[in-house]
């Protein structure tokens, strides 16, 4: 596998199939946290870290434990458990070893366990990079990159949305549209812009 494959996967997951705006994964945190720029970016970084790591761990589990022993039906259970334990573990480690970093995104870690983006990335990897129960060539690296790209796309969407919502504070929005409805409508417009990328196949 060469570099261009990796770059196309990154571009694809960030722009063409953005996790939030075209796959709707991670919408709950997107709507809930995107009020201010700083927390949004911190949350985005935390998600990127977890999606990347989760992609690695779940790929190893799927390829070396679940597939060889025909335990595919345990995919959901094992993935969610591994992600939850990893997040818990990361929280403890970061809190002890890097308190400064913990201040930036530590508080978002518990929220991430049930973030659809993380679990979604793990499931998507097994759907896309496995064929007839076998890993496709370069599957591991592709999964890792897709996991990273998923988080990066999430961060980008969060950053843009929080920038818009900060401005929105000063806008005179009708009362029934305030907060959540207007956020959805902005997200719809953003999604329309991202639709311009669709149709590129890698």
């Amino acid at each position: 596998m060469d570099l261009s494959t990796y770059i196309t996967i990154i571009i694809s997951t960030i722009f063409i199939n953005n996790f939030i705006l075209s796959r709707f994964l991670g919408l709950c945190s997107f709507i809930g946290v995107s009020k201010n720029t700083l927390p949004s970016v911190s949350m985005g970084l935390a998600v990127t870290f977890v999606t990347t790591m989760a992609s690695i761990i779940t790929w190893l589990i799927y390829n070396y434990i679940l597939l060889p022993y025909n335990l595919e039906y345990l995919r959901t259970l094992s993935f969610i458990l591994v992600i939850a334990s990893f997040v818990q573990f990361a929280e403890i480690v970061i809190q002890k070893k890097a308190p400064a970093l913990y201040k930036v995104f530590g508080i978002y870690l518990p929220l991430i366990t049930v973030n659809c983006a993380v679990f979604g990335a793990a499931v998507l990897n097994t759907d896309v990079f496995f064929l007839h129960g076998h890993a496709v060539p370069g599957s591991f690296m592709k999964s890792l990159i897709q996991g990273f790209g998923a988080g990066a796309g999430f961060t980008l969407a969060m950053l843009i949305m929080s920038g818009i919502r900060e401005r929105l504070e000063y806008a005179d929005v009708p009362r029934s549209m305030k907060d959540i409805p207007i956020t959805f409508i902005i997200a719809s417009l953003m999604s329309m812009a991202f639709l311009g990328f669709s149709g590129f196949k890698i």
Binding site: S22, S176, A187, S188
Partner: peptide
């Protein structure tokens, strides 16, 4: 497509509010 979904739910929530 994706934008239609976001628009629909946005308008529905506003309507219910």
């Amino acid at each position: 497509l994706a934008p239609g979904a976001l628009l629909t739910i946005g308008i529905l929530i506003a309507l219910i509010n």
